[in-house]
């Protein structure tokens, strides 16, 4: 069947949307996923003017930008102000990865005593200026789309960019990893091997990567649309998983994502006291 396209398919370079990629508190793995697109990278550059992407090029074009990809969480006063500026300069703002969408692994601080961490880790804690919490971008500015993952999935990133370009909703299902895992034909590592797995509570998108290698899901993509972490947690405990390991399982990359946050009882730190001068300088 052949029909005539009513649109003019030729896109003049000047009308290409501009792209900016921003980094907040993160490991760079998610923006690296964009560079990792290798085969599709030229196609991306054909459709978008890469205006600001420090990991790829130090040549930057001033804003405003049509679309911003934002990686990382908000952990400092400076970043709290900077994200407002990024939002003001971006027509469409897409957050990428567990840090930007849930606060990341650094959100473990949210249930602990940050000054204690500073005292243990840094020789001179007074050099460190940080907020008490690590929070997702959506806690600070309005976000147009959140892409999950630690790191994000390359194909899903291309899907989101492709969907943005033609103005449709991206296919990023909110159902569990189990649906993808069964589509792949994997045996269930939880049922068949007794391996602790967060798949039933975790959003799909990775292609069931870990279970495909017979490992349990670590929950990198955060909570599925309507997870039941309490029931899954109870089952894992019944199967013999020690409570501290259950807590560790839920509280990694997406520890601050609401349904995972409350999935297990977080013990209150018992040593909440300010570090002494002597301890600070040792």
């Amino acid at each position: 069947m052949t029909v005539t396209d009513p649109r003019n398919p030729t896109v003049p370079p000047s009308s290409r949307p501009s792209l900016a990629v921003w980094k907040f508190a993160s490991c760079d793995g998610c923006q690296l996923t964009l560079l990792d697109c290798e085969d599709e990278l030229l196609a991306v550059a054909d459709q978008l003017d890469v205006a600001f992407f420090l990991e790829a090029s130090s040549a930057s074009v001033a804003g405003p930008y049509d679309v911003s990809l934002v990686e990382g969480s908000i952990t400092t006063e400076e970043d709290r102000a900077r994200i407002q500026e990024v939002r003001a300069q971006s027509k469409t703002l897409i957050t990428i990865g567990a840090c930007a969408t849930a606060g990341g692994i650094q959100a473990l601080r949210n249930t602990s005593d940050v000054s204690e961490f500073l005292r243990i880790v840094y020789a001179t804690p007074s050099y460190i200026s940080t907020l008490e919490t690590s929070t997702p971008i959506a806690d600070h500015v309005s976000v147009d789309f959140e892409l999950r993952g630690c790191p994000i999935d390359r194909q899903q990133l291309l899907e989101v960019i492709g969907a943005y370009l033609v103005g449709r909703t991206p296919n990023t299902p909110g159902h569990s990893v189990c649906v993808e895992c069964k589509q792949q034909g994997n045996p269930c590592v939880l049922v068949a091997h007794g391996t602790p797995c967060l798949g039933p509570a975790t959003q799909a998108g990775c292609g069931a990567l870990c279970p495909s290698y017979l490992r349990g899901c670590y929950g990198c993509f955060g909570p599925a649309e309507t997870p039941n972490p309490h029931s899954l947690g109870a089952t894992l405990l019944e199967a013999g998983l020690p409570p501290d390991e259950l807590q560790r399982l839920f509280h990694t990359y997406n520890a601050w994502a609401e349904p995972f946050r409350g999935a297990v009882q977080v013990p209150t730190p018992t040593h909440r006291r300010p570090a002494t001068q002597q301890e600070n300088t040792r």
Binding site: S176, A201, P227, N228, S231
Partner: peptide, 13 residues
Amino acid sequence: AERCLACGNCTMV
């Protein structure tokens, strides 16, 4: 529903 994970495994298998 208190037990169900809504994971969809039953429908897949």
